[in-house]
Design a binder for these strands. Structure first.
Lengths: 214, 214
DNA sequence: ACACCATGAATTGCGTACAAAATACGCAGA
DNA sequence: TCTGCGTATTTTGTACGCAATTCATGGTGT
């Protein structure tokens, strides 16, 4: 990994997270010049990052207007959700890798953070935790192609829950998540990755329903 | 679709096809300057296209060296093949769209071209036909996300067969393909998209075995 | 008062010059 | 002859100026 590609990865991850955590809400206009100043570079590398984000469907760039954060709603994302469900199940079947003690420790840590969240709920902290759980689960499959695809689809849909939280009960959502992550913990501690995949699929499906996707 | 994005799409499709049809064999170095001259533009738009191709795994760019067409072999692509199989089956289940007469006509045309190929086999023409079949089949699902993902994975693995053809019997491969496309035609004429997906999965699986992927 | 046009400001797209990096090659020395 | 170093060459990465495009705004005519 060269220096240039490291900076690219940093900028890309930073902007992607800001979009998915609603630091940039849909409709926000991202100025190439401002980003270039912030990251202490010229517009050229910034444009590479924005082009990639556009390919990933997180922004849309139009000549003479600007680069605008795309909208995300459950209706247009229904198909993406559907696919994510299938892939989550698949991740438990396709070339799983052996579960190591370090994996369980990582999941333990996530469980503890979730319980802290039940005591003091916070939408953004919740979204971050959800993202970490996703990253952890994708790390459990050794199928690199599946990881890439799942990641891509996850980041496309990640914002929807955070956008819908005003219409939901935050504490209730956190409690549901806490129950889910404990179920996953139980399945993983027995080494049953297939069950982990099925649980994950079920949870995605239920959250889709709660979000009004029918 | 603006003019700039159209040119981008043209250049991207052109280079992608050249790579997948082995006009650019693995290891070929693509010169930004040469491509800029060919497409009558500057290096800037060319670099955008190459960056995208790199994201898709078809080339790799290294500072001071050049942009090199990546290698593709059945061993490193085994996981991608596995995922493609599952997605092919999924395409028959997830939000299928009604089959129109125009679809059957299009498949008819492909069948005729295949029969012409049986009489006069040609590796490149075969690869082109295979690509058209793929594009036709992805057009049958209305799940846009699934289409995008399937496309991406297809182009990552498309070269493998063409690279392996010296070790295979071309006529035999063409005949197998002819049988496959007729089976798909039969299934599609009854409107059974689920069967189409299962057939496609079976064919991908068998071609994977023939290519030595076990 | 309202509609319409022109003009200016802001933004992305492109082209080009230069910097950074890696390789190829020649030459000197052992 | 072989090894090692330095330099020239080639290539990608970055910065910046300018062109192209869009929108807002104000002015003008009816």
């Amino acid at each position: 990994m060269t220096e240039a590609s490291e900076r690219f990865a940093r900028m890309h991850a930073a902007l992607r997270d800001r979009i998915c955590l609603l630091d940039y809400t849909p409709g926000t206009r991202l100025s190439e010049a401002e980003l270039a100043t912030e990251f202490k570079t010229s517009r050229t590398p910034v444009r590479r990052v924005l082009a990639r984000l556009e390919d990933e469907g997180l922004v849309q760039t139009r000549h003479g207007i600007g680069t605008i954060v795309t909208d995300a709603n459950i209706r247009t994302m229904a198909q993406t959700y559907e696919l994510r469900m299938e892939l989550a199940q698949l991740a438990g079947q396709l070339s799983p890798r052996p579960v190591r003690p370090a994996d369980l420790q990582r999941l333990d840590a996530l469980c503890r953070q979730t319980e802290a969240l039940v005591i003091r709920p916070d939408p953004r902290a919740f979204a971050v935790l959800n993202m970490h759980l996703h990253q952890f689960l994708t790390s459990l499959t050794s199928n690199a192609a599946l990881c890439q695809v799942s990641d891509r689809l996850y980041y496309q849909t990640a914002r929807i829950w955070l956008l819908a939280i005003p219409d939901l009960d935050l504490l209730s959502e956190v409690q549901i998540f806490a129950a889910e992550i404990w179920q996953i913990h139980t399945a993983l501690s027995t080494g049953d990755l297939r069950a982990v995949g099925l649980l994950r699929r079920a949870h995605i499906s239920m959250s889709f329903k709660r979000l009004g996707g029918f």
